[in-house]
Design a protein around this nucleic acid. Structure first.
Lengths: 348, 348
DNA sequence: GTTCATTTCGAAATCGTTTTCGTTAATCAA
DNA sequence: TTGATTAACGAAAACGATTTCGAAATGAAC
């Protein structure tokens, strides 16, 4: 019933615990005969080293913590999958926690993970997080911390991101290239870096094309939950406020889908009356009608890259080297679908 | 740099480690004065008990394992969220692993979790899993194991499920009530219990309504990945094989969405020519056009219930009581949307 | 037969807590 | 004064593994 220990194996073979331990780890000072004996018995008894004991000695937990704002989310669940897959390959287990976009929770969870003595932490920040003491705490303990997607530029640690600004620029440029003259932007919440960068990309694209930037065309959502309803609401408001808008660049696919639904219901033609570009390439976007032109945001790869970087840093800590921080920027692409028109050839 | 230990606190206060430990845990044989001193110093030094040491002593890890076939999946990510939320409330951490629908991986992961000495395991079986020795291994160690959604009826442990059979019956009955005369079924893979039960519900509904059961109308997919493409493929095949089918009950929403997409592309009218009912109520289903009538499968609640049951059993083990297994069946509901017609009133 | 090297094993310390069982000193009753 | 009681603390043994440092046994070399 009780798990088998080294001692039990030792007793059964009339040798010491030391010898058993060494035999299992192929120490050179143990004879081949005893090694064989030990390994066989360990096998038949189904011996599994007690992770706590090992970790206590070696100061390694082979475990990392992962904090994300929301689990039920196409992009984030892809990231989780990438992380978990990569971690398992390297023999690491992943403890997952959801911050619910709450700063307070996030802080508590970091403490939890530190107490659990995880070897490293992967985090995508909550929208509400503006103070970074809980993060610098981690770094002060020489514990690797890698931020991904929703990051804080000010914190000195590795980051895995996409170039939100550039991607937003490309998205907006596509609207312009397909003939849109007056382009709105749904930017979601105010704070997170992504929101800021995407907005800046949108703005720059306008200016680079000698189109006026009109703040009243930028819809901010205090709630900032990037929801389907947010999209519907904003779309409804837009139709009231600005009849002349013929293109929208939207922060997140889900919001874009909300907007499209509203437009569909109100009989607004997409892309003829209004063209729409989303962001993230949720699976859903390929399936709705009209299908959504969007920016591909590689969640799985991001998770993979984030873990790889964390792993590198964990190795550095292990070898008592200094941690080398790195900013990793993943490529994105524009996925053209039905919600935008064809690119004009003659003009421009 | 190194984490603070009891010993450091003890040294600073010139008392013993024992006293520090007791003071922090409010033992009655420590004076109020020392307690105050200890607690204060612990606070300022930011002391966090070493989880390994604690676990090694107490034989409790306050950690559970979770194995699911696929993380990027609306239903499963809802389940994860329910589990993680509930676990955190009770002070448990969740280690998440993805079996990728592979029996071999599932087996390895169980071993991993046992070695990690988790206090309990939550699992939704891989499609390929037909042998249950790895599961009975867990139970033999008196370690609580709760299965959810994709279960093995033969394994003696607690299970959290929905009544797939009944739900499928309701779905099929709805097609019949809305006037469908010849109803097909896309059942996905052959093996998993859900697939079987949903098929049986479908069949029973037909028979109870004196409609012939025609095996050629049941589409099985060897690949069994419940994918969008599977839906498109099956739909294409169906249109070739059976021009007279006017309703389909489909195993999973995603497959149903694939089918709908194919029908849309081929100009088949939904629900006039063919009515469609899905299963699971993915968010997507409310958003596509036409929106999909489906069965609501409460993922979050299932996760919550699964953890609650696991928690109960972990308490039982702690109190050296016998584990009481329980089958928990969650309610489902039919969500009527545009992919099926209105219920006929006059007839039947 | 002595010396030295090599092979093979074990004793013991250690990781950081928890908990049992004493021990000491102070207090109180008689 | 003596004995019993109580309050407050500590020594030490776990938990299960790892690793350092020796020790014993064997063989080789002279």
């Amino acid at each position: 019933m009780k798990p088998v220990t080294l001692k039990e194996i030792a007793d059964q073979l009339n040798i010491s615990v030391t010898t058993v331990s060494k035999a299992l780890k192929d120490y050179p000072d143990i004879s081949k005969k005893t090694k064989a004996l030990v390994k066989e018995l360990a096998q038949t008894l189904n011996y599994k080293p007690n992770a706590f004991a090992v970790n206590l000695r070696t100061k390694e937990s082979k475990t990392i913590g992962l904090i994300i704002p929301e689990i039920v989310h196409h992009f984030f669940s892809s990231v989780i999958k990438g992380i978990v897959a990569q971690a398992e390959k390297k023999g690491y287990l992943v403890i997952i926690l959801q911050s619910n976009e709450s700063y307070e929770l996030e802080k508590k969870q970091i403490q939890l993970l530190l107490r659990q003595r995880v070897d490293g932490i992967l985090i995508s920040l909550a929208n509400g997080t503006a103070d970074y003491n809980h993060l610098t705490d981690v770094l002060a303990q020489d514990k690797p911390l890698v931020m991904f997607d929703k990051i804080a530029k000010l914190v000195k640690c590795s980051k895995v991101i996409i170039d939100d600004r550039k991607a937003a620029y490309v998205a907006t440029q596509h609207l312009i290239d397909t003939g849109c003259k007056r382009i709105a932007h749904f930017r979601g919440a105010l704070l997170p870096q992504n929101s800021i960068d995407r907005f800046l990309g949108y703005k720059k694209a306008l200016l680079d094309n000698n189109m006026p930037y009109d703040p009243s065309l930028v819809y901010i959502c205090e709630c900032g939950d990037n929801s389907f309803e947010e999209g519907k609401m904003n779309a409804r408001q837009l139709l009231k406020d600005h009849k002349d808008v013929d293109g929208i660049f939207i922060n997140t696919d889900l919001v874009a889908i909300g907007a499209i639904t509203e437009f569909n219901e109100q009989g607004v033609k997409i892309p003829e009356d209004i063209a729409v570009v989303g962001f993230s390439n949720w699976f859903m976007s390929s399936v709705i009608s009209p299908s959504l032109t969007t920016i591909d945001q590689p969640g799985y790869e991001m998770g993979k890259a984030a873990f790889k970087q964390l792993y590198k840093e964990m190795q550095q800590v292990k070898n008592k080297e200094a941690i080398v921080y790195k900013d990793i920027v993943l490529e994105t692409g524009l996925i053209k679908r039905q919600s935008t028109k064809e690119v004009l050839l003659g003009e421009v």
